[in-house]
């Protein structure tokens, strides 16, 4: 990668952060109910994430990390509590408004990439733009630029199944950033990759945060990766412990 970073600088380099709050979570609670059992997945989560912050969430499996990320990404609704994104309340939004909100403000990266194998790389990256008022030409141009940023300009006509794990995750990052969202939510983006590839992906995310000012929230199991971010939040049994 051209933009190899000195990771050690990042741990303490919070100078670029503003006081403006990008994500605000207040008293978030999530309960899963079945006919016979109630499971408390998240309890009393209070978290403010600043604009331009790179935050990581850690914790053992089943502690509610992904649930929290899904709630931040408006993919799931909390049982109780308030979410504000960019100072906007989100609990009253309709299905259509939520879809538009996610499309404009949020980008997602998943552990298992979730690329559409039937579509070429370029079409995969264009996907978020399909739900905006853009022409085919604009979509193509923006997707090509996004792929250039992750170093995959030479793979646009390939299908996801023809790429390595690291390359697939880079396509997923290109898809997440193509619509220039203010926030990227990454659920274990390096979880399926070896350490070298994991570091490559991490470099891309760090560059994105640094150069574009994108707010990033990342769920991870990897202590090393977490320490490269501005702040680390730990969860245990659905509660915030750090």
């Amino acid at each position: 990668m051209d933009n190899q970073l000195n990771h050690s600088q990042l741990i303490t380099d919070n100078s670029q952060l503003t006081t403006h709050k990008m994500i605000q979570l207040k008293n978030i609670e999530k309960v899963y109910r079945t006919d016979t059992i109630e499971t408390l997945a998240l309890s009393s989560i209070n978290l403010d994430i600043a604009k331009g912050e790179f935050l990581s969430i850690m914790g053992p499996s089943g502690c509610g990390k992904s649930t929290l990320l899904n709630i931040m990404g408006l993919l799931d609704a909390p049982s109780k509590g308030d979410i504000r994104i960019s100072d906007q309340k989100t609990d009253h939004l309709s299905d259509k408004q939520l879809a538009q909100f996610r499309n404009k403000k949020l980008g997602f990266i998943f552990q298992s990439y979730h690329l559409i194998n039937d579509l070429q790389v370029l079409d995969n990256v264009e996907l978020p733009l399909l739900y905006r008022d853009t022409t085919a030409k604009e979509r193509r141009q923006l997707a090509t630029e996004a792929l250039a940023k992750v170093g995959l300009s030479n793979r646009i006509k390939h299908f996801p199944t023809q790429l390595s794990g690291g390359q697939r995750q880079r396509v997923a990052i290109a898809r997440a950033i193509v619509g220039r969202p203010e926030i990227i939510l990454a659920d274990e983006p390096t979880g399926n990759l070896d350490s070298a590839m994991g570091n490559e992906i991490m470099d891309i995310l760090i560059n994105l945060n640094r150069n574009e000012g994108t707010t990033i929230v990342m769920v991870t199991h990897d202590e090393n990766m977490a320490h490269k971010t501005h702040r680390l939040v730990r969860l245990f049994d659905g509660s915030q412990v750090q």
Partner: peptide, 16 residues
């Protein structure tokens, strides 16, 4: 369903 999830996450409404 994975594709549906991705499309919804990236801004497709149910109607779309």
């Amino acid at each position: 369903s994975s594709e549906i999830g991705v499309r919804k996450a990236f801004g497709a409404s149910s109607k779309t």
